[in-house]
Computed example of a mutant assay.
Amino acid sequence: MAAMDRVFHDLHRQGLLLLANVADAGGARLVERQGSKAVATSSAAVAWSHGYQDGDKLPLALLAGTVESMARVLNVPLTVDIEGGYSDAPEQVAKVVETVIAAGAVGINIEDGTQPPEQLLRKLDAARNAASQRGVDLFINVRSDVYLKHLLPAEQRLEELLRRATQYAAGGANGLFAAGVVEPGEIATLCREVTLPVNLLWRAGLPSSAELQRLGVRRLSAGSSIAEFLYGAMSGLTQRFLENGQLDTSGLKAHSYAELNALMATKADNT
Rank of each mutant, 00 (worst) to 15 (best):
E243T: 12
D5Q: 05
G251N: 08
A265M: 14
L18N: 12
V39T: 14
V73E: 06
I108H: 15
Q92P: 01
A71I: 13
A61F: 06
E155R: 11
A25P: 05
E228C: 09
R214W: 12
M1C: 12
Q119R: 00
Q119L: 12
D56L: 11
T195W: 06
S256V: 03
D54L: 00
L152W: 13
L124G: 01
A126V: 07
V194Q: 06
A179K: 04
G223M: 09
L215Y: 06
F229R: 01
L121A: 05
D125M: 02
A268N: 10
L17P: 11
D5N: 10
N244W: 12
G245R: 13
E155S: 15
L16N: 01
E259M: 05
A28L: 02
Q115K: 08
L148P: 00
G236T: 03
K57H: 04
A28H: 01
A71C: 14
I101F: 04
A47V: 01
A94M: 10
S144I: 11
G27H: 06
L148V: 02
G35R: 03
G175L: 00
N174D: 03
A179P: 07
R192A: 15
Y168Q: 04
R192N: 15
V97I: 09
V106S: 09
L148A: 10
G55A: 04
P207K: 07
G223S: 01
A44K: 04
A131W: 05
V80D: 00
P116F: 15
H255I: 05
N244A: 15
A178K: 04
R29E: 15
Y86I: 08
A45T: 02
A28R: 06
A170W: 12
N109V: 12
P184L: 02
A28S: 10
L78A: 09
P116C: 12
L151V: 03
R164W: 00
K123N: 02
A169F: 05
L11H: 07
L151K: 00
R157L: 03
Q156M: 10
G205A: 09
A38K: 14
V76E: 09
A131G: 12
A154C: 06
E91Q: 13
S87C: 09
G135A: 09
D10F: 14
A25K: 08
N75H: 13
L252K: 01
A233T: 06
S144A: 10
D137E: 13
R157A: 04
A126S: 05
V96K: 02
I110K: 08
V136R: 07
F177M: 04
Q246Y: 14
T41R: 01
E186L: 08
R240P: 03
A103E: 03
H50Y: 01
R218Q: 13
Y52R: 00
A131S: 13
L16W: 09
S49N: 13
M234I: 13
E32Y: 05
S132V: 10
E160I: 04
A71F: 15
Q133R: 14
Q156D: 03
G35N: 05
Y257F: 10
A61R: 08
L60I: 08
Q53G: 04
